[in-house]
Write a protein that binds this DNA or RNA. Structure first.
Lengths: 391, 391
DNA sequence: AAAGTTTGTAAATTCATTAAACAAACTTAG
DNA sequence: CTAAGTTTGTTTAATGAATTTACAAACTTT
């Protein structure tokens, strides 16, 4: 029951609008910002000068005149601070140090053997500390840590349940905040991936997108009106457990015929083992398909079919503008895409499909880690300026 | 790129907050509003007096003292204006005149024979005109018309596609606005139903709920953070076309094994015809079940199972706090509920289920019409005060 | 009856935006 | 090359909504 209106709120809103334009439309002049936003030149000038004061914006010299005095061009100062992003996987972690624009300054990939919670968090802390120490000197220093994890989180940053890690109820955010004295944001890897794609990938201009992470299981990050949708208890996007066969085989979630029993990496490997007669891993399947092994290619194609079945469900249930397929299985794009698109053509309602794009991720295994870092940046800006929805 | 902050915005926000408390927590004093909202007594006083000025609030006399001067209690003036709500069905329409609190003043139910678009809209206009003419004298008169329709609408109020009516691309909003010179809001019947349940039904205290309308087909209205979610093109909530059997029978939407092929009224009647050997309608099935006909009861129970299958999908995909089952089939609650709950118990993930309620609608066939009327009221208030999310 | 509470209004202050005016810097037409 | 017109960004005064402080009225409690 908070958030009443006062002059403070007005200023925060406008400052955030101005900063937004400096971040996305730069180089840009004060006059142009005033024109775009509808704010007066005086207001923009005053806010810009405060942003320069606080090192978030900088003047980079005059630009081209359009028939009058030359404008002073403004740039967002991405190096005023740095953020840490981590994608905590089941067998490895990918950690990055980025500047405030999301540019990767340094990257560390470390394997782990999925030991105890203590072992893994210890490794996590070491990795983060290393990156913090390599951060260049800057006005704000390292401003926060973002973490994408393969499990369910509540809005307080507790990791409630991560079946593939074997973790339950780990207060990761609190631990890391205590350790580093920095703001920490933790969220599901699919949510982080969705934000990564929205900020840095193919989803830049899309307000409603769904990122489907196809790994051992299937998860989804849902962005609605430029905002992550988490459901009532942080549990939304358990799309892998939408049943595509109500009397199908039993899933560990209790339900029958869940999508991820048919369309995940786990499903692929199981099927491959059965048909090829021996255990295989994803990498070797990809190699075999690449070398033209018809049996393996057929495995991928069948998976593409099942992917399509679930994607049709997503379309009918959420009607996104853009579906981005990511995760480890995205490497099979070459063989997955055709059967998937064929099925969409046949089975999805014409109206929602018209305005829909379906693509595999271009960021590959970086969607999550970049999204995680951008969580930290977003939290930093939210603490100084109120974030307001814009396009 | 609009919506910058200025004094006007501040006032609209605060006025809307004050009005909100007068609407929901009445009777309430100025001092109490100040206490709850954090606004100063002076500000509240000034805003309340403006609301009284514009007839939206009124003083109803002093209340109980709590150790000092007695407070002047305030009430929302629900009779400052009236709204029209219409639930346009496939074979009938239900139209109501409500006051600004949503209280039904008059109600008309009219059968139609699903004739041409012109015939039905003509009937619609006659019905609405009749209600407008019976509206009591008031400060603002009839402030708008809300309409729930069995089809897909875009955000401009065009009815894009209504398969069961056989309508396509009807500019209903424009037509009605021209006819009556009043603001008109048009939306899907399930969306209207969701809002109806949220405002007047069991969903009053719930920010995230899904209303599932089980009629000839199955539709859903999705409320996220107190706001209707429409998807990218107004097409969200086509939950009836989520496939529960990827290799099942073909649906008219192009896909195979859609939920509504198993769990809709249409599915029930078809199955009944097959098993009983003759055509029946829903009413007679309900009567037969009531009189203990085991074969019919078994039909309902099987439907309950299929309902459950889809509800599990909804839980895993959206994680709502509350699922309300409505529409014509809600009349079968008695036989549907048990198998449905049994299936939920067995098949849904424990974590999201813990915080979940699943119930049949108490508003019965009035969810949609009440929601439609409240669309009109909401639009009216949005034009005078900015609407802000509150609980 | 005196003291303390609560309610609601009034007056003075604060502060971010707007509107209007303006100086500086530049382009272009003749 | 000059005069006129444009564009940029700052300065100054005005606006108006909220806050702070003060206060009177109405009431309860001791």
């Amino acid at each position: 029951m908070k958030q009443t209106g006062d002059l403070n709120l007005v200023k925060k809103i406008n400052k955030s609008i101005v900063l937004h334009h400096i971040r996305t439309d730069s180089p840009i002049s004060r006059a142009r910002i005033a024109e775009i936003t509808g704010l007066t030149k005086a207001t923009v000038s005053s806010l810009v000068n405060e942003l320069i004061e606080s090192s978030l914006a900088q003047e980079i010299g005059v630009g081209e005149s359009s028939g009058g005095r030359k404008p002073m061009m403004l740039l967002f100062n991405g190096t005023a601070g740095y953020a840490i992003g981590v994608d905590l996987g089941v067998h490895d972690m990918l950690a990055v140090l980025t500047d405030l624009t999301g540019k990767v300054i340094r990257e560390n990939r470390i394997l782990h053997h999925n030991g105890s919670v203590e072992q893994v968090t210890q490794l996590l802390k070491t990795t983060i500390r290393e990156l913090i120490e390599t951060a260049p000197e800057s006005v704000y220093g390292v401003i926060g840590i973002g973490l994408g994890v393969p499990g369910i989180c509540d809005e307080e940053g507790n990791l409630l349940f991560a079946p593939n890690l074997g973790w339950e109820n780990v207060q990761l955010q609190g631990q890391l905040e205590a350790e580093f004295g920095l703001p920490v944001v933790i969220d599901n890897e699919a949510n982080a991936g969705a934000v990564g794609e929205k900020q840095f990938g193919a989803g830049k201009d899309t307000a409603n997108l769904i990122y489907v992470s196809i790994g051992m299981g299937i998860g989804a990050g849902i962005i609605i009106k430029n905002e992550l949708y988490r459901g009532a208890t942080g549990f939304a996007g358990e799309i892998g457990h939408i049943s595509i066969q109500h009397d199908g085989p039993k899933c560990r979630c209790g339900s029958l015929g869940c999508w991820e029993l048919y369309a995940s990496e786990h499903a692929l490997l199981e099927q491959a083992a059965r048909e090829l007669g021996h255990e295989v891993d994803l990498e070797s399947l990809l190699t075999q398909a690449e070398s033209g092994d018809a049996r393996v290619i057929e495995l991928f194609e069948r998976l593409g079919y099942y992917l399509g079945v679930g994607v049709v469900n997503i379309i009918n249930g959420y009607n996104p503008e853009f579906i981005i397929l990511g995760g480890r299985l995205a490497g099979g794009e070459k063989w997955l895409m055709k059967p998937l698109l064929e099925l969409l053509e046949k089975r999805s309602l014409p109206h929602p499909r018209k305005q829909l794009r379906v693509e595999f991720s271009q960021l590959r295994d970086r969607s999550t880690v970049l999204g995680a870092a951008s969580f930290a940046v977003a939290k930093f800006f939210a603490s100084t300026t109120v974030s307001v929805d814009r396009n």
